[in-house]
Design a binder for these strands. Structure first.
Length: 439
RNA sequence: GCCCUGGUAGUAUAGUACGGUCUAGUAUAAGCGGCUGUCGCCCGCUCGACCCGGGUUCAAAUCCCGGCCAGGGCGCCA
């Protein structure tokens, strides 16, 4: 089929901006065919754009032949332009309809489509991800990404107001930034390099010149995780602050979370309604439990974890039932935290690291950082890392590195909390995991 | 990496316990026809599928073995 040119047609209004008061006005709508209901002498076409839908009504005996001919070609998901007049009527759901004077076919779609766009037959997550952009047209997904947009804006606004400067650190790095998570290697000219798993060391270094920094960006972990809450590529929201301790940045964190939840429940009412989800605005301060208290609580539930060991996922699920909201877990064993987390000077087996939990899921991780060079070197060795590969980082300690603390939040997990989605892939446009590399 | 479950038209599913009218059912999508007020329109007709390979058997969608893929859980990790 020969496509029509866009020509000088431009959208005069979004579908949601049309209303009965525009009765008689000629408008141009650009969007996609979502439904076709042909009743014989009258045909209804539901046109969708990024905002919503509008009904195009074609009384076949009244419209011109060209409109009739174009209308006969239309199929679901065709990209079209409609120039026509608004007609006030009680027979249409929104109190008006649009009678076309001209239809332009701007893009065609194959049939059958890889998934049902009408929502009558829901597809599985694998099918949906394989045809992701088509899947993203659905109202539910548009709502999710409006929420993501508002969430990111809220984080940026709040942190900026608190004096944090937005920075970008390298994605391509020479050595591991932390122990723990595995790295993807990349061919960097004739050398081996890695994709960054976190901005950790860079953001710490930047406290020396900017004092308060934040970064929002993608990071990479080559873990063979097979869960609903892990990704190979995820977005991290990081802050780091000079002259601060874990306690200080926990306060910043709970205020940030409060602000984000408040902003969302105010600015995304429609989206949350679409998702059938509510965002509770947490009361501050958030509850704080020490690791030891959590272990005691689990013991009362019949789950016995020796002090010093990590809390396994099933135990976290139990905790989530006991605490179905936000709560901090503080004073983790030093051994279970990365080398840069500061041990308590009074009890070095306990660290100043904390996690912010939402129900059973870890949303944010942070802590006071080690800022003594000798202690950091000792901690590196204790964790089986070679101080030599951290020499550029260690050098910064000789330039007057301030005491500092910070945290990192997983954006996707925050979005799971805000949207009620149960699988992290639902809140990522094009997720990357152990098996998925396309689209 | 380990464990569990599954793989049937474009999509989503029924059928698989106990092999045999399964010539594989249904919904939706798609094609054709009809219908002037639909809004999950409706009505009629049509198209379209048992993941791959091997085995058992007179007979396999169904049982067995191997592979691939997917979903979920665990571990790792955040």
């Amino acid at each position: 089929m020969q496509l029509d040119p866009l020509g000088d047609w431009r959208k005069t209004l979004h579908t949601t901006d049309v209303n009965p008061q525009l009765d008689g006005e000629v408008i141009t709508l650009l969007g996609w065919v979502k439904e076709i209901r042909d009743l014989g002498a009258i045909e209804f076409i539901i046109l969708q754009d990024r905002k919503g839908t509008v009904q195009i009504t074609i009384p076949k005996k009244k419209v011109n032949k060209k409109v009739l001919e174009k209308a006969s070609f239309l199929q679901l998901q065709y990209c079209i332009g409609v120039k026509g007049s608004v007609k006030k009527t009680d027979m249409a759901q929104r109190g008006f309809e649009v009678i076309p004077d001209e239809i332009r076919i701007l893009g065609i779609a194959q049939h059958p489509l890889p998934l049902d766009i009408t929502g009558k037959t829901s597809a599985g997550i694998d099918t949906r991800l394989n045809a992701r952009v088509l899947d993203l047209c659905k109202e539910n997904n548009r709502a999710t990404w409006n929420i993501q947009h508002e969430t990111l804006a809220a984080f940026r606004r709040f942190l900026s107001q608190r004096g944090f400067v937005e920075v970008f650190t390298p994605r391509i790095i020479a050595t591991a930034t932390e122990g723990g998570a595995a790295l993807f290697s990349v061919d960097y000219f004739d050398r081996e390099a890695y994709l960054a798993q976190s901005p950790q060391l860079y953001k710490e270094e930047l406290t020396l010149c900017f004092e308060k920094v934040f970064e929002i960006g993608p990071f990479f972990r080559a873990e063979e995780s097979h869960t609903r809450r892990h990704l190979s590529e995820f977005i991290s929201i990081d802050i780091e602050q000079a002259f601060a301790t874990a306690d200080d940045v926990m306060k910043i964190l709970e205020q940030t979370i409060h602000y984000v939840c408040e902003t969302l429940s105010k600015n995304c009412r429609e989206e949350l309604k679409v998702l059938k989800h509510e965002v509770d605005i947490p009361k501050l301060p958030l509850k704080r439990f020490t690791y030891t208290e959590i272990l005691d609580e689990l013991k009362r539930e019949g789950i016995d974890i020796p002090w010093g060991e990590d809390i396994p996922t099933p135990a976290f699920r139990t905790l989530g039932e006991l605490h179905p909201y936000f709560y901090f877990i503080t004073e983790w064993p030093t051994e279970s935290k990365p080398f840069y987390i500061k041990p308590l000077s009074s009890r070095p087996e306990v660290s100043e690291g904390f996690d912010l939990m939402w129900k059973w899921m870890e949303l944010v991780s942070g802590g006071t950082r080690v800022h003594s060079k000798s202690l950091l070197m000792k901690r590196l060795e204790e964790q089986g890392l070679n101080p030599e590969s951290f020499k550029h980082h260690l050098q910064v300690f000789d330039y007057g590195l301030p005491p500092h603390a910070g945290w990192a939040a997983g954006l996707e997990r925050v979005l799971m909390m805000l949207t009620g989605k149960k699988n992290i892939r639902e809140v990522v446009l094009f997720p990357r995991d152990r098996t998925r590399l396309t689209p």
